[in-house]
Write a protein that binds this DNA or RNA. Sequence first.
DNA 1: TTTTGAAATTTGTAGGATGATTGGTACATT
DNA 2: AATGTACCAATCATCCTACAAATTTCAAAA
Lengths: 230, 230
Amino acid sequence: MIQKTNRMNLVEQVASQIEQLIGSGHWQIGDRIPPEMELMEKFDVSRNTLREAIRALVHAGLLETRQGSGTIVRSTNALGAAIKRHVKKSALLETIDVRLALEKQAAQLAAEHRSETDLAKLEEYIQLSRQAVENKDYEQFIKLDIHFHQAIVSASNNQLLIDLYEPLAEIIYSFVQDLMAMNKPFKYEEELHIELFTAIRNQDKHAAATYVEDYMEVLRKEVVEMIEEE
Amino acid sequence: MIQKTNRMNLVEQVASQIEQLIGSGHWQIGDRIPPEMELMEKFDVSRNTLREAIRALVHAGLLETRQGSGTIVRSTNALGAAIKRHVKKSALLETIDVRLALEKQAAQLAAEHRSETDLAKLEEYIQLSRQAVENKDYEQFIKLDIHFHQAIVSASNNQLLIDLYEPLAEIIYSFVQDLMAMNKPFKYEEELHIELFTAIRNQDKHAAATYVEDYMEVLRKEVVEMIEEE
DNA sequence: TTTTGAAATTTGTAGGATGATTGGTACATT
DNA sequence: AATGTACCAATCATCCTACAAATTTCAAAA
């Protein structure tokens, strides 16, 4: 079989190495990476070559450069940044449908694969959510709710699913925050997803999927109302 | 409310303009964009600045530079390139589960929103697939099969779903091609998805979802067999 | 202690020079 | 007619130097 020849130019070589340094955790999020001069020597390339590599990763959302200050690590996965950028141009309802698709699948997989650790974590979030509602700390409630959803997706044990879901959850989270800032009424999910937890604990795939579908329908209706009000 | 001042540096300004030129179709896929010298003058920036912008888009998968030849447009959406890169590092089974999630949702939405044009297109692919099987042109059959699946996703009318699905379909298509090149046996789906078509025509959401789930389970089993053989 | 301001550090932008790769043309060879 | 060779022009790849702009650092001044 014929394969395209793959001669990597210097810029891509450097970019790929930096990506690895970030991916492996050698450079953590928030860290300032060495200045250009130092990296030029380390990689043994000219300033232009190095800058093109860094610029590529800045555009991808992995790095952020600040003139006079330095370059810091901003994210570990380029996919998340790409999705966020793309989703911002999409309609919110479309985003919800995609989130439904991913979370429904995740809930089914979670029902199959959930470990005891997963169950403990889910139960903890439910407990904390209940406390937050009692204290009327609604901001905290929203935060915990997001964590609960992400814990479900994590329990699916499918890394690709997790990576795709995360940026969507962030987008929707920031939307809900905007709603709260505008003092719009927001219906708090009172049942606290206990049914969903039960379904996953009992490894009942079908019930889990149905529950996700139902609450996403509620969210969808709320969003439609919001949009129509304006 | 105080907003951060948004001083986009020159590189990002140029990159963003080029992205727009590609997104708007002013520069089509396959087109050769003007050489650096010309773009330097058009954007009124130095060579370094222009090259950093182009390099960022090359890394994102929108452009491809060829020394001596020029720079061509390779893709219109950066998300697809990012997903492809990410998925290549994922396990194939994970990819199948994500594809199932998206296509199941797409089939349900298609059942709700399908237009007469959508139905006509689906029917046409089924017809052509049947011919391909009769002619024993299996490569053509695979190609048409992919088109059929993408037509379903298109009928969902959810652009985000479409953009996420497309790169996954491409990955799986290239995997199937590899299988055929290795002369592995490949079970052709004989029923030609007529049931799925019928469900969408009859606007039967539930049947559509069930059908997608069933044939994805078949695909999954085949992949598992392949992997175990090695 | 707080404020100010000069110096050092770091990234942003510009411009020029040379090398490497590709595509095309013309011409000779088979 | 098909293939091989030599050459040229266009284009990107890499390197270099220089200066501008933003930020940080730190010592001197209030």
